[in-house]
Amino acid sequence: MTEKLLPQSFDFDGPFPRLSRRLRLGIVGGGRISATQAMAARMTDLWEISAGALSSDPEKAKARGADLFLDPERCYGSFEEMADSEAARSDGVDAVMITTPNNMHHPAALAFLEVGIDILCDKPLTNEIAEAEDLAARSAEAGVVFGVSYVMSCYPMIRQAREIVAAGTLGDINQIHVEFMQDWMIPDGVEAAPHVKWRVDPKISGPTSCTGDIGTHAAHLASFVSGLPLTHVRAEMHVCGAPKPLEDTVFMMTRYGDGVPGTLMATRLASGNRGGLRLRIFGSKGGLEWDMEDAERLRLNVFGDPDRVLSRGHGHGVSAATERFVRTGRGFPEGLIEAWANLYTEFAMAVAARRDGVAIPPDWIGLPQVGDGEGGVRFIHAAVASHNEGSIWVDV
């Protein structure tokens, strides 16, 4: 009998279903973000960490694998070896997370695409547009699930905000403002730290640093909630702190579908801002505002009515679809790890559906996919082109 992961029947409008077993997840990349994602994947109770290519040094790979309680035989010295070996096992990984530096995303993803293993890749998807297009085409041809970790879209109140906009509560959107303000790059010399150094190295990070790392989160979030594609940017990139090869700050004028104007700002030198991702969308009937440093609340205003504050939790005005992502009651805080867990929950549902041959409704999951990643790479290159040409308008 062929293994089935999803129940024979379940309600797509209800909570996400329980699978028949935990899915097996592999890790490519041994940095801090891989540990964060592994923690979140385990939180879902839908995944177990089964294998890893955690370092190009075989001894380091095994040592890091021991920290994750991995079988030493499944701690690989390269992602190529891992892809081939896991594909040949009857208990091989169902999917893999790719958490390497940016320049390795394309070759690592190719290795697993070629053996038909589903992928969740960090952003930016690649450093070059041609590489992003290649991954999008190959994943479509292979028929695999290819998610991209725009995790900010997985906060419950962001899902609620998206529903509010789609329902027309704000009327016709007339402007969109998004910013991502951090302060961790203020100290002199921080760019020399091992976990930072590659982020300002064009050979590894690509043509941008701040724009590609956190600016892409802001751009994706604005389109995700508004439902409008980002069409044009006019960008200025700056090094506001200690000298470094790539920008630490970017300011943009933006345009979205239907000519909707907006702004996008991102920096790592905004003292006092740690997770300062803020989204504001205004329309002909009202507006909404969300701040990641107060992520459990969503401000909603319908012009002429009293302002409302919706809060994460069961009830209190949030939709059934939003409640799928709620783990604790109102008053018991949830945050970034839970948002990562929501991402891995949707990834698990997508992987299970593909393996079972189940067609899922288009609005059942909001998992950011390879097309979103390709769009992020186009956004980066449009911003670079705009800046290099004297901050002219550039078509994304």
Rank of each mutant, 00 (worst) to 15 (best):
P72A: 07
V165M: 11
P124D: 14
A51L: 05
E3M: 08
F112V: 00
I281V: 14
P261T: 13
I117L: 02
R355Q: 15
T44W: 07
V358K: 09
D84K: 03
L269S: 07
G262Y: 10
D305S: 14
D134P: 06
F180M: 14
M157A: 06
L135C: 11
D172S: 14
V326G: 05
G147D: 07
V28S: 01
L110A: 01
G390D: 08
V358Q: 09
P202G: 01
Y155H: 12
V196H: 09
K123D: 15
G376T: 10
I214A: 05
P368A: 01
S391N: 09
G373D: 10
D67S: 12
D91H: 08
A385T: 04
C75R: 01
G215N: 04
D363N: 15
D11N: 14
A61L: 04
K4Q: 09
D395G: 07
P368S: 01
D57T: 06
I360L: 15
G65E: 02
G375P: 10
K285M: 06
T216L: 11
C210G: 03
R24P: 04
F16A: 13
W47A: 02
G313K: 05
H316R: 11
A359Y: 04
G272T: 05
R268V: 13
Y256P: 04
T231D: 00
V151C: 10
E323K: 05
A218Q: 06
P368G: 03
I117N: 00
D291L: 15
D294M: 08
E128G: 02
R378V: 05
E389H: 15
V93E: 00
R24I: 04
P243W: 11
V151M: 11
A53Y: 00
L120C: 14
G31N: 08
Y150Q: 10
G143S: 07
C154Q: 12
M253R: 13
G390N: 10
V233E: 07
R74I: 02
A132W: 07
D11C: 10
R162C: 10
A353G: 08
L113M: 03
K4R: 13
V370M: 02
E293F: 08
E128L: 07
I164Q: 07
W47F: 10
I164S: 07
E163A: 10
A40W: 01
P245A: 15
A193R: 11
F303E: 13
T211P: 12
S153I: 03
D134E: 11
K197Q: 14
C121P: 01
N388W: 08
E334A: 08
S85M: 03
G212C: 06
F332E: 12
V96C: 07
L113C: 00
F146A: 02
H217F: 11
D363W: 09
V93Q: 04
T345Y: 04
G262I: 06
L300T: 05
I27Y: 01
E289W: 09
G116Y: 04
N103H: 12
A166S: 15
G143V: 03
F347R: 02
G357D: 11
Q175Y: 15
G375K: 09
P243S: 10
G329N: 13
D13V: 06
E133A: 08
G357L: 12
W393I: 11
S205V: 00
Q175L: 15
H195N: 13
R64A: 12
M43V: 05
A137G: 10
